[in-house]
Write a protein that binds this DNA or RNA. Structure first.
Lengths: 165, 165
DNA sequence: ATAATAGTCTAGTGATTCTGTCAAGTATTA
DNA sequence: TAATACTTGACAGAATCACTAGACTATTAT
């Protein structure tokens, strides 16, 4: 239940690659494709959409590629997903594009609304910087009762090493 | 993004109707259909699935219908949805039926996992009783720490006020 | 200039999932 | 035994997903 489309997933992973190289010039689609194992053609679509929203910039010609428009800490996961898939809308009732026919009769309306708002808050609080640092859960520790420990706690050492390089 | 299927939505609304009548004998599918505006045939499928899980019981013959097997306060929304749609699995990576091919390379793995856990905690903390009393959000506020990270932490005050009214 | 590199844009398509319907049952009770 | 009501499995149209294809535009190194 509640699956995120591959488009959104790939988008976040692509943004991670771009953020990762934010001090090393533009990243090409080909590089992202190889590192994240997503087809070039599909990435073209996804990155194009993100570019139009201003979240990334493209540089054409040899040596070109994509770069972040902002600091990784200023780009939330929520923003990326919202751009690619629209706002969280657990029900069509709550989709701004559709609207609700029978709000009053819909007992569960506020339930889904609250769930959606909470999901958005979660996604908005998480940034590319958190992903880069691998500590999104540390940032969540500020909220009492949160999942303890570092997000990288369960990641194998060789992976950490590769990510750090 | 992240829409819940109508099956899950209808399931919760049907359970609401059954819970609502829990002191007035069985509710027929026809009644649920009329009150919640869902076809009888589709409800048959949904309620059958819920019956098999033991969450409701059916009574056959004239005067029959469906009744809750348990107290409304003991039936969580999460349980209903899980029965109808399986566990929350933001990515196929996290679906117990599929499994992850490349856990190590999946930078975002723990991000989605954490989101999923938060959603499940939210849904598990909410029961039919909360829906019946129409104070699902107030009751949530009374249980600090039960939901990891106080899921209401970032919800705007004006929203809380509206929900509480 | 021009070749090579790299992004831009629009369609289209096969597969899958969703959202149900239909029909032929079985069980229970008044 | 008629009426009520649940049970089960098959199936089908519609929508969405997850891409692929192909033609185009822009930039830079030589």
């Amino acid at each position: 239940m509640l699956r995120l489309s591959t488009k959104g997933q790939y988008g976040v992973r692509a943004m991670f690659e771009i953020a990762r190289s934010c001090n090393h010039g533009p990243v090409t689609i080909r590089e992202i494709s190889e590192r994240q194992d997503v087809s070039v053609a599909y990435l073209e679509q996804i990155l194009n959409q993100l570019r139009k929203s201003g979240i990334i910039k493209s540089v054409r010609g040899p040596g070109g590629g994509y770069v972040l428009s902002r600091d990784p800490g200023k780009v939330s996961i929520g923003e990326i997903l919202r751009e690619l898939e629209g706002p969280v809308a657990i029900t069509s009732c709550l989709d701004p594009k559709e609207g609700c026919m029978r709000v009053e009769g819909c007992v569960t309306h506020l339930l889904w609304k609250s769930l959606g708002e909470n999901i958005e808050a979660f996604l908005n609080s998480m940034t590319l910087k958190d992903l880069l640092e691998g500590n999104e859960f540390i940032s969540l520790k500020q909220r009492p009762g949160q999942v303890p420990g570092n997000i990288m706690a369960k990641v194998p050492d060789k992976t950490k090493a590769r990510l750090a390089s």
